[in-house]
Design a protein around this nucleic acid. Structure first.
Ligand code: ZN
Ligand code: ZN
Length: 715
DNA sequence: AGCACGCCGACT
DNA sequence: GTCGGCGTGCTC
C-alpha cells in the first residue's frame, strides 16, 4: 500500500493472485490501489478482521519480478517503506485505484477476404485506406494519417472480416549517419564488446568533445541488432529535443520511449508500458526511468554520471546511477557510466577494481588542442569592481575580433565561508574538519557538520588584516561592472529568468549562431551541455566563491564545473583561451585546471577524503528533522542521538550533530540534521535497520517531520 | 499519508 | 445549542 508504513496488509481474494498484481482494496475508510506481494495461507487465523480484495486490475499483466526485485532493493537500501518505494517507482496512472485505459497498439492487417474485396476507387477515402493496407500493415496512427476517419471504417471492416488486429512486428533496424570512430573510441567500444565479465560496470571517462555519445550509439546499435533493449539515463538538463533527435535520427525505425518528469502522465504511462511489453527498444529518461521494466534489457548507459540530478531529493531519496548499477548487475548486463568529470565515488570504485575505466583523452571533432588556461592573481592585478585589467583586455580583444566569449560568474553561496583577502585564511571549524559559514543576521560563524558556533572575528586571526569577507562578496555587481567597462559589447545574459520560456534556448542559440552576441554571461547552468559552437575565450571571474564552503563536496563540484566550462573553449583552427581570476592561484584545483590534469586533482581530493574520513572513504546517512522551531527539531534529534549512542559506538558508526541545516528553510520551518558515518557500509546499514525498527512507531511531536537520506549529497 | 474520532471556543 | 479548530491514533 502507498502509505508510510513498513508492513504489508492481508486481504482475502476468491482466487490466488500473482505477485505484482494491481488491485483495489478498502484501506481504513479509503479505497486505494494495492500491489500483491505474496499469497498467504487461507487457513491462517488473524487477530483482526480481514477485508476482501474489491477489484483486480488485470488489464495489464502483473508487474514483473525484476521490477519488484529492484523496488525491494531500493526500499532496503534507502530504508524507505516498501509500499511507498513501490509506488514511487510506478507511473502516476498506475498508483490510482482505477483500471488504466491504454491505446490498442496492435496494427491493422488485411485478411485474405479483405485482400480479395473490391473497394471502388470512387470511394476515395476507403480506397486509399485499402490500398495502404494492401501495401503493408497499418498502425493506428498510420491509418489516421491516411484518413482521419480510418478508425470507424476499420471497425466496420473488422466486423465484416476484412481486417484483423495483430501485434506489430518489431520494426527492422535502420542505422543512419554513423560517424567513424577514432582509435580511442574504437578501443573503448571493442573493450566493452569483448568483455568476458559483462556485468562489471564500465566508466567511460572522456574529455568534453571526445565523442562519448557516438560510442554509446554504436554500443546501442549492437544491442538492438542482438534484439535487446537499452536503457539510457541522462541528467534532466541534458534531455533536450536535440539529444533525443540524435538517437531517433541514428535509429529512425526503432521505437524509442522518452521518460522524464515533464512528460504528461498519460504519455508517460504509454511509454512505460511500451518499454515493459518490449515494444520500445530504447528508453531515454531522467532518474525516474531507472525503474522502467524492460524484459529484454541488454545494456544500461548513464551519461554524465557525476550529475547531481540523479539523486532524488525528497521522499524516496534514491540515486538513479547507483540503482542502475545494481539493476545491471542483477540482470547480468553491461552498464556504462560516462563522464568527463567522474565523481569521486565512481573513481574510488575504479581504484578498488570494482569498476573498469576506459579513457577518451582526445577531442574527436573540435581542435586536437586543449585550451590554454591562465590564472589571474587578483591580489596583484590591477582591478576595478572585481574585474582585472587582464580579463577586460582579453574580452575587449575578442569583441573587436567579433569572436564569442563566455563569462562565468559563480554566485555567492547561500551561507558562505569567511576568508581573509590578504593571507587567504579561512574560517575552519575548531571541533571538526568542516568549514564554518557565516550567518550575517546573527553575526555568527556556524558549523553545519557538528553544530559549533562562534562570533564572526573582526580581524584575521592569522595576519591581523581587517579586510575579511564572506567568499563571493560582490558577485551581484560583476555583471553591471562588465557592462560599464565594455559599453560597446553585445552582452547576452543567461540565467534562470532568461531561460524560463519554452523557446528561450532556441532564441539564444539563434542569436549566438547568427553572430549577434559578443559575450555570454551566465552562472552554474552554463557548465552543462549546451553547444554554443566555438568559444574563443572563457573568463571565470569568481570561482573562489565556490572553492570553499560548508559542504565538503564544494571543491569537487567546482572542479567538475570548471573542467566542463573550460572544455567549451577552442575552435577548429586555434585553441581557445581560459582566464580565471583567483586569490589562490597556487591552489591545487586551479593548478590541475591549468595542466588539464583531472586525474591529479581527483587523486588529491580522494586522498583528502580518505584522510578526513569523508565519502567515498566512508558512508553516510543523514537523519533530517524539520519543525516550526529549531529547538523542536534539535531536541528530537538529540533524543535520537542518545538512543543511538550505544549501538552506534558498538558497531563503529560515528554520530555527528545535531546541527542546523544549511539549506534555505521553507515557510516558517526550521531544519536540523544528524549525520551517521561509518567506514563500513554494512555497519551503517545495520544501525539504520535498527533505527527504522523503532523510529517510525515513535510518537513524534506534532509539527515535526523527519526523513532519512542514505548517501546524502549535501552535508 | 490521510482520514475519522474526539473534545473545547465563537457563531446562527 | 452547533460548526469547526486540529491533537491522537489507526489503517489488514
Ligand atoms: Zn589574513
Ligand atoms: Zn564542526
Amino acid at each position: 500500500m502507498d502509505v508510510p508504513l513498513w508492513s504489508t496488509f492481508s486481504y482475502l481474494a476468491d482466487r490466488s493472485l500473482p505477485r505484482g498484481q494491481r488491485v483495489r482494496v478498502s484501506f481504513g475508510s479509503r479505497r486505494m490501489c494495492g500491489v500483491v506481494t505474496n499469497n498467504g495461507n487461507a487457513e491462517q487465523q488473524y487477530a483482526f478482521r480481514i477485508k476482501c480484495v474489491d477489484e483486480v486490475f488485470d488489464e495489464l499483466p502483473p508487474l514483473p519480478e525484476a521490477f519488484l526485485d529492484l523496488v525491494n532493493f531500493a526500499a532496503g537500501y534507502y530504508h524507505h517503506p516498501y509500499g511507498q518505494t513501490l509506488f514511487t517507482a510506478l507511473p502516476t496512472a498506475l498508483r490510482e485505484p482505477r483500471a488504466v485505459r491504454l491505446p490498442d497498439r496492435r496494427v491493422w492487417r488485411l485478411t485474405p477476404a479483405g485482400r480479395d474485396a473490391e473497394v471502388a476507387p470512387r470511394h476515395k477515402v476507403r480506397h486509399a485506406l485499402w490500398q495502404a493496407l494492401c501495401a503493408d500493415d497499418l498502425a493506428p496512427e498510420g491509418a489516421r494519417a491516411v484518413a482521419p476517419s480510418a478508425a470507424t471504417i476499420l471497425k466496420a471492416w473488422q466486423d465484416s472480416g476484412w481486417v484483423t488486429r495483430v501485434d506489430a512486428a518489431v520494426p527492422p533496424l535502420a542505422v543512419e549517419g554513423v560517424i567513424p570512430l577514432n582509435t580511442a573510441q574504437r578501443a573503448a567500444l571493442d573493450a566493452i564488446e569483448a568483455s568476458s565479465a559483462p556485468h562489471k560496470p564500465w566508466l567511460l571517462h572522456g574529455v568534453t568533445g571526445s565523442g562519448k555519445t557516438e560510442v554509446y550509439l554504436q554500443l546501442i546499435e549492437r544491442q538492438l541488432r542482438a534484439g535487446r533493449q537499452v536503457l539510457v539515463l541522462v541528467p534532466e538538463i541534458n534531455l533536450t529535443p536535440q539529444l533525443i533527435a540524435r538517437f531517433t535520427q541514428r535509429f529512425p525505425l526503432t521505437p524509442t520511449a522518452v521518460l522524464h518528469s515533464h512528460v504528461a502522465d498519460g504519455e508517460r504511462l504509454v511509454a512505460w508500458v511500451d518499454a515493459w511489453q518490449g515494444r520500445a527498444r530504447i528508453v531515454i529518461g531522467t532518474r525516474l526511468a531507472v525503474f522502467t521494466p524492460m524484459p529484454e534489457l541488454g545494456m544500461v548507459i548513464v551519461d554524465e554520471e557525476h550529475d547531481g540530478s540523479f539523486k532524488q531529493q525528497d521522499g524516496l531519496r534514491y540515486h538513479a546511477r547507483d540503482l542502475a548499477v545494481w539493476r545491471a548487475h542483477r540482470a547480468a548486463v553491461p552498464i556504462v557510466l560516462g563522464s568527463a568529470t567522474p565523481c569521486l565515488e565512481t573513481l574510488a570504485n575504479v581504484d578498488a577494481g570494482r569498476y573498469r575505466r576506459l579513457v577518451l583523452a582526445e577531442r574527436a571533432h573540435h581542435a586536437a588542442a586543449l585550451p590554454t588556461v591562465r590564472l589571474v592573481d587578483v591580489r596583484r592585478a590591477k582591478r576595478s569592481e572585481g574585474l582585472t585589467d587582464e580579463v577586460l583586455a582579453a574580452l575587449a580583444d575578442r569583441v573587436r575580433k567579433r569572436e564569442l566569449s563566455l563569462v562565468y560568474i559563480n554566485r555567492r553561496g547561500f551561507a558562505p565561508v569567511v576568508a581573509c583577502t590578504e593571507c587567504g585564511w579561512l574560517s575552519g571549524c575548531p571541533r571538526c574538519s568542516a568549514k564554518l559559514v557565516v550567518h550575517l543576521l546573527e553575526r555568527k560563524l556556524r558549523c553545519h557538520h557538528c553544530g559549533w558556533e562562534e562570533a564572526v572575528p573582526h580581524v584575521c586571526p592569522d595576519c591581523g588584516n581587517t579586510d575579511i569577507k564572506p567568499l563571493g562578496e560582490g558577485t551581484q555587481r560583476l555583471e553591471a561592472a562588465l557592462g560599464r567597462a565594455l559599453p560597446t559589447a553585445r552582452i547576452l545574459r543567461i540565467d534562470r529568468d532568461t531561460t524560463q520560456r519554452r523557446e528561450a534556448w532556441n532564441d539564444i542559440y539563434r542569436q549566438v549562431h547568427a553572430g549577434e552576441v559578443d559575450i555570454l554571461v551566465g552562472t552554474q547552468m552554463l557548465a552543462k551541455g549546451h553547444d554554443f559552437g566555438a568559444l574563443s575565450l572563457v573568463a571565470i571571474l569568481n570561482a573562489d566563491a565556490a572553492l570553499y564552503s560548508a559542504d565538503f563536496r564544494a571543491s569537487e563540484r567546482l572542479f567538475s564545473q570548471l573542467i566542463q566550462v573550460a572544455g567549451r573553449a577552442g575552435r577548429a583552427e586555434r585553441p581557445g583561451e581560459v582566464l580565471l581570476q583567483t586569490q589562490w592561484p597556487e591552489h591545487p584545483l586551479y593548478q590541475a585546471l591549468v595542466a588539464h590534469d583531472f586525474d591529479r586533482y581527483a587523486a588529491e581530493l580522494l586522498g583528502e577524503r580518505r584522510q578526513l574520513g569523508f565519502p567515498p572513504a566512508s558512508f553516510q546517512a543523514q537523519l533530517r528533522a524539520d519543525a516550526p522551531t529549531l529547538a523542536e527539531a534539535s531536541d528530537f534529534l538529540h533524543t535520537i542521538r542518545e538512543r543511538l549512542a550505544q549501538p552506534a559506538q558498538a558497531s563503529g558508526v560515528a554520530v555527528c550533530g545535531p546541527a542546523p541545516a544549511l539549506m534555505v528553510k521553507l515557510a516558517n520551518r526550521e531544519r536540523a540534521q544528524l549525520v551517521l558515518e561509518s567506514p563500513q557500509r554494512a555497519a551503517l546499514h545495520q544501525l539504520l535497520n535498527q533505527l527504522t525498527e523503532w523510529l517510525p512507531a515513535q510518537n513524534v511531536g506534532r509539527g515535526l517531520r523527519w526523513s532519512l537520506d542514505v548517501d546524502p549529497q549535501d552535508t
